[in-house]
């Protein structure tokens, strides 16, 4: 039986990784709500965020804030390119949704191969944003990077909420999510909103990648597992809102972490997928799906 310290420490670790899953899940939600597309290339945006941040921060020795901002902008630009060259043509030709979703999977593989060919397959990591640490609360250790993940995650959720609720563009994006045809009739440029959703989603993924790389590494191959966990988080939370997706991510991170403590690493995904199935059985729209609909 695991000790209380082990459980608390696993809770801390689970929250840390869960926040990252949550940010990725929000990226899934933004595109899904604007278009109905599940973007399986979401994971590669996480990978690209870490890769570009490494290049700017370590290779070019740019300051952290500049390196992070530049990485987010570059990856958001890649998201826009994906939308322009892959998604939009299929969308305009009225390709079936499954074909578009399959195309996003192909985009992931394509980007991974391009990264191998251009940046190599070596893993990269860089130091935590605040050196020193961890913060010790008795036997519990909390790495400083967790606070960065927590702070940046909360900030991004607040900004997204403000964007969706207080700005014209954000409200237009929400209108698209509720009824694309009606939004188009009202003069909302649905195509432009879709492009914006890809930029936002890619930028969020990049931010997650920049935040998590100091606690592990980034390499061409890290996108897929992050994408899968982000997708599961989005389903658990429900595709309705950013806070719900974030909560889904935290829940998944904590469950995975607790599963390692109680059952061992081999059972981590078994338990996580069991939780997913339970959620889907009892809450088909996700834990917070119903709640989000009311708003």
């Amino acid at each position: 039986m695991p000790s209380v310290v082990e459980l608390v420490q696993s809770l801390v670790n689970g929250v840390g990784i869960g926040l990252v899953y949550g940010l990725i899940a929000i990226g899934f939600c933004v595109i899904y709500n604007a278009s109905g597309i599940v973007n399986f290339a979401q994971g590669v945006f996480v990978m690209l965020g870490g890769m570009f941040a490494y290049s700017f921060l370590v290779t070019l020795k740019w300051p952290l804030a500049l390196a992070a901002a530049a990485s987010i902008i570059v990856v958001a630009g890649i998201g826009v390119l994906v939308q322009i060259f892959i998604i939009r043509p299929m969308w305009e030709r009225k390709a079936p949704m499954f074909a578009i979703i399959l195309a996003t999977l192909a985009v992931q593989l394509l980007i991974e191969q391009i990264v191998i060919l251009t940046m190599g397959d070596q893993p990269r990591t860089y130091p935590e944003f605040t050196l020193g640490g961890p913060l010790k609360l008795g036997p519990i250790a909390i790495g400083y990077q967790l606070f960065w993940v927590l702070g940046c995650g909360a900030l991004m959720v607040v900004l997204l909420q403000l964007f969706f609720n207080k700005t014209r563009v954000g409200r237009a994006l929400r209108a698209c999510s509720q009824n694309r045809e009606a939004a188009a009739l009202l003069g909302i440029p649905v195509g432009g909103m879709l492009m914006l959703s890809f930029a936002l989603s890619a930028g969020l993924g990049a931010a997650a990648g920049i935040l998590i790389t100091p606690t592990q590494y980034t390499a061409y191959s890290v996108g897929a597992p992050f994408g899968v966990n982000g997708f599961i988080s989005a389903i658990i939370g429900g595709f309705g809102s950013a806070p719900a997706a974030l909560a889904g991510g935290i829940l998944l991170g904590v469950v995975q972490s607790a599963a390692i403590v109680v059952f061992g690493a081999g059972y981590k995904n078994v338990i996580a997928l069991t939780v997913l199935l339970i959620v889907l059985l009892f809450f088909p729209k996700g834990l917070f799906g119903g709640l989000a609909k009311k708003h």
């Binding site: 670790n13 592990q216 191959s221 597992p225 972490s257």
Partner: peptide, 8 residues
């Protein structure tokens, strides 16, 4: 493929 081994 795991991203965190802090627990172990």
């Amino acid at each position: 493929e795991d991203s965190d081994f802090s627990v172990q």
